[in-house]
Design a protein around this nucleic acid. Structure first.
Length: 561
RNA sequence: UGGGGCGUCGUCAAGCGGUAAGACACAGGACUUUGAUUCCUGCAUCCGGAGGUUCGAAUCCUCCCGCCCCAACCA
């Protein structure tokens, strides 16, 4: 796969690796990992991390593991594991046989904990959660040592074994690292590394009632897998001293190192798993793969392409600045890819019936149309033409605004791939609404400019009423009305865009789209890119999702007035 | 408030002591049987602020200001 932009992106992480390689810090190895917790679907923010981790591995001839960080059974499930695997593959990355689960390391991790106890560096604490919090102190006050901090090694070993054996109630005991209750970094004030939780784990079932905490499991999982670069987001920067502490206590050689980068934020949406789960559970979207969701599944169903997402991730770069990336950049990447690859077709979203008065009744002819104006290799297709057509309601104006160059009383316009037609008359209903147009066509203009040299500026799309197929089209807009919903003080749902989905049920698309395959993307000329919905589309009743509209210079001009 | 991190164009982001890349966005223009695509052109005398070091500073030093993260038995 070739990225079209940023051919050789550089960033501070690559600088670090280059330097390490130069000074032989990792024996020439670059081993990364992508470590999702299977408690939700992955989103565009994860894509940034996936592109970084897998990208590094491929760039430096290293490896990137997929590791499920499944140390907290609540909320984790196989469904999520499967969706994550599917989504990463779809994005275009592969981990070969290097798929791992932190839960597979539970026994090893337990033994590491025992080792820590034997070194006098961990103890079983009987304080409850509230008490632990109180003893922890605050930003300004140091913590207080737990009364259980100085238990003997044997007692700790015995108690920890009992914890594992299920002798204690949930929450009654925890295993804590014995570090420093006065540490200015609160994370280092004897952090909890094991808790008792009687909850079935989706993989280990009821084999365990104690589970390791992230800080303990993650760094050791990295070490077990021989990870050289453990790349995570900025909010874990505070945890790095603990990461290093654990690794230094328990790992002799080839210790992994953590490097943090800024997570992605995207305008007009929100990409925190917690919030996305809420949207799904409250029914504010139709599911994890709702095309409005910033999830990989949602973007896929919407019609975004893996290449577009990868290009986007390359474009945004990797740094440590907090950021809010303009959604317009993502849309640009999507258009850029679709412009090159999507076949052109015609579809009418808001149909207006038009009769070509001088075209013989019952006659049909076929036009050969290019599937891509700039790329003849994409071939042609035939599109039927007849006396009665549908055009876009918007392409006719009874009283056209300035610079408008489409159809209007007295005007001529080119029917895309077909004839030039001229306005004759209109038919209105009792409400004064235009319901039908009558035009005449110029037979000389088939594939040719008007013989007398007159210029016809406007070009509009159309479908033949007799041949077209009815379709449903779903128009999507930004999920939120404010650029940074996560930054608002009030509940984010207040800023949901009520018009993020508009369903059009009486659209017509050209006949060739009758059996369009799910997932296929097309450009509906002059409108935008559309993708056959993978869930709801039927052979005789296709459903299209608008991936992204075409850039609309006219809309800007018209919008200004 | 203690600790950690970050401040370069509207949004991202290069830059690593030698005089501000690039992308998106935006604004003009050319071409066009998609008001699309493509193609030109413009868009930070200035790098959070103030001092200082230096022949020379976005890059080094000092102080100040602002934003983000940490007080889950979540990750």
């Amino acid at each position: 796969m070739t990225e079209t932009n940023n051919p050789s992106p550089t960033d501070f992480i690559r600088d670090i690796i280059d330097e390490d390689l130069k000074t032989n810090q990792t024996a020439g190895l670059v081993a990364t990992r992508f470590p999702p917790e299977p408690n939700g679907y992955i989103h565009i923010g994860h894509a940034k991390s996936i592109c970084l981790n897998f990208g590094l591995a491929s760039q430096y001839g290293g490896t990137c593991n997929l590791r499920f960080d499944d140390t907290d059974p609540s909320g984790e499930s196989l469904e999520y594991v499967e969706s994550i695997i599917d989504n990463i593959h779809w994005l275009g990355f592969d981990w070969g046989d290097r798929m791992f689960f932190a839960s597979d390391y539970f026994e090893q991790l337990y033994q590491f904990a025992v080792q820590l106890i034997k070194k006098g560096k961990a103890y079983v604490c009987d304080l409850n959660a509230d008490e632990i919090r109180e003893y922890r102190g605050s930003f300004t006050e140091p913590g207080t040592e737990s009364p259980y901090r100085n238990r003997s090694m044997d007692e700790n070993l015995d108690l920890f074994e009992q914890m594992r054996a299920g002798e204690f109630e949930d929450g009654s005991h925890v295993l804590r690292a014995r570090i420093d209750m006065n540490a200015p970094n609160i994370i280092m004030r004897d952090p909890v590394i094991y808790r008792i939780k009687r909850e079935a784990h989706y993989r280990t079932g009821n084999a365990w009632v104690i589970y390791p905490m992230y800080d303990f499991a993650h760094c050791l999982s990295d070490a077990i897998e021989g990870i050289t670069y453990s790349i995570c987001t900025l909010e874990f920067e505070n945890n790095r001293p603990l990461y290093d502490w654990i690794v230094e206590e328990l790992i002799e050689n080839n210790r992994p190192h953590q490097t943090e980068f800024a997570r992605l934020n995207l305008s007009y949406t929100v990409i925190s798993k917690r919030v996305l789960i809420e949207l799904v559970e409250n029914g504010q979207v139709a599911g994890w793969d709702d095309p409005r969701m910033p999830t990989i599944a949602g973007m896929r169903r919407r019609g975004y392409t893996p290449q577009a997402i990868r290009n986007f991730c390359a474009q945004i770069g990797v740094a440590k600045n907090d950021n809010l990336i303009d959604m317009a950049l993502l849309e640009h990447c999507v258009r850029e890819d679709l412009n090159e690859h999507a076949p052109r077709v015609m579809g009418v979203l808001h149909p207006l019936r038009i009769v070509i008065d001088n075209y013989p009744e019952g006659q049909t002819e076929e036009f050969e149309c290019a599937n891509h104006p700039q790329n003849p290799d994409m071939g042609t297709r035939t599109v039927p033409f007849s006396r009665v057509l549908y055009i876009e309601r918007d392409d006719f104006h009874e009283d056209p605004p300035g610079k408008y160059k489409r159809l209007a009383p007295g005007r001529e316009v080119r029917l895309r791939n077909a004839y030039v037609i001229k306005y004759e008359s209109m038919v209105k209903d009792e409400k004064g609404e235009v319901v039908e147009l009558h035009c005449i066509y110029d037979p000389q203009t088939r594939n040719a400019p008007p013989a007398d040299g007159r210029k016809v500026k406007g070009v509009i799309h159309w479908v033949s009423a007799e041949h077209c197929v009815p379709a449903e089209v779903r128009l999507y807009d930004r999920l939120f009305q404010v650029s940074n919903p996560a930054g608002e003080d009030e509940e984010f749902t207040k800023y949901l865009n009520p018009n993020s989905l508009e369903t059009l049920t009486s659209c017509y698309v050209e006949s060739g789209l009758k059996d369009a395959e799910a997932g296929n993307g097309y450009q509906f000329e002059r409108l935008g890119y559309f993708c056959v919905d993978s869930r709801d589309s039927q052979p005789d009743r296709p459903v299209f999702n608008r991936v992204v509209p075409l850039r609309d210079t006219w809309g800007k001009i018209a919008g200004k007035k």
